[in-house]
Design a protein around this nucleic acid. Structure first.
Ligand code: MN
Ligand code: MN
Ligand code: ZN
Ligand code: ZN
Lengths: 140, 140
DNA sequence: TTGAAAATGAAATTCAGTTTCAATTAGTTT
DNA sequence: AAACTAATTGAAACTGAATTTCATTTTCAA
């Protein structure tokens, strides 16, 4: 099972491995998209009627704390969460018509960003590059 | 007075030029920072006790519609608004300690962004580049 | 001056997200 | 295996920013 590192995180913090957490984390790993709490909640409900909304929220927060998930708040959208893929940073193109999310990385941009920071004597700890527009399908 | 274009916008839409709108727009132009609705509301209150919260909200929305202001939602912060300076786009460095906001532009990044979009067959309509970290004063 | 349409402010409402709390559960200790 | 204790749970209450409602007021053109 892939969620071993989550169990490790729980142990290290003296927290408990519960049925609900197992279900939520398992689904989160399987979905593998930018999913909202509601998405996950409904998926979890299909597995087990007794899983509550707050538990889904709390579990996602734990995943973020564990460094296994990241929170994304795109313009005008509800908060979404995504799995951290082998610790690699990436940014997003977001279609304002269909909502499609395309990921990209660009080393040259990241290099230029360093320059910008240096120029302003600024120490970067994180960044967010979101490009909004129309995806290939919605262009015309 | 600089808010002539706002009055023009109102006329063109069949809307009315009111005392409240004059006060709010006037203050917004003078403040010239990334100000929250609350900032503006309090400033307006000092000028005229009868100006309400909703009117400030509504006026800022109108300014955005008129293309004279832009809405900014930095991570973990309340919504802020800023004056559009001669139609020029810019991005931001945000200090996560003191909240300072530094503006930057970088043509080379914007060019590379075009390339990224082309590669994904994506038509850009807008973008948002936010760099979080520590400003020169908060670095140590 | 008048009249119709727009604007106002206070209060109510919305909505995502968080907190509360009594009851339940996990995991360790006897 | 039972007892113990701290963490967890779900439902409901709450929060805070933003929006809407609506009776009253204001604008502005005729
Ligand atoms: Mn992503
Ligand atoms: Mn700015
Ligand atoms: Zn699309
Ligand atoms: Zn600072």
């Amino acid at each position: 099972m892939m969620n071993k590192s989550f169990r490790d995180y729980l142990r290290s913090k003296g927290l408990k491995s519960t049925h609900q957490r197992e279900v939520v984390v398992d689904l989160f790993l399987r979905l593998d998209t930018h999913c909202s709490v509601e998405d996950l909640y409904h998926a979890a409900q299909r597995k087990d009627k007794r899983i509550g909304y707050s538990t889904v929220y709390r579990t996602l927060k734990l995943l973020v704390e564990a460094g296994l998930a990241e929170e994304r708040r795109f313009s005008g959208e509800v908060t979404r969460f995504e799995l951290v893929h082998r610790g690699k940073h990436h940014d997003h193109l977001i279609c304002i018509k269909c909502g499609r999310i395309i990921e990209f990385t660009n080393d040259r941009i990241e290099k230029l960003q360093e320059k910008v920071a240096k120029k302003h004597n600024f120490k970067i700890s994180d960044h967010k590059y979101e490009i909004y527009g129309y995806c290939s399908r919605c262009k015309k």
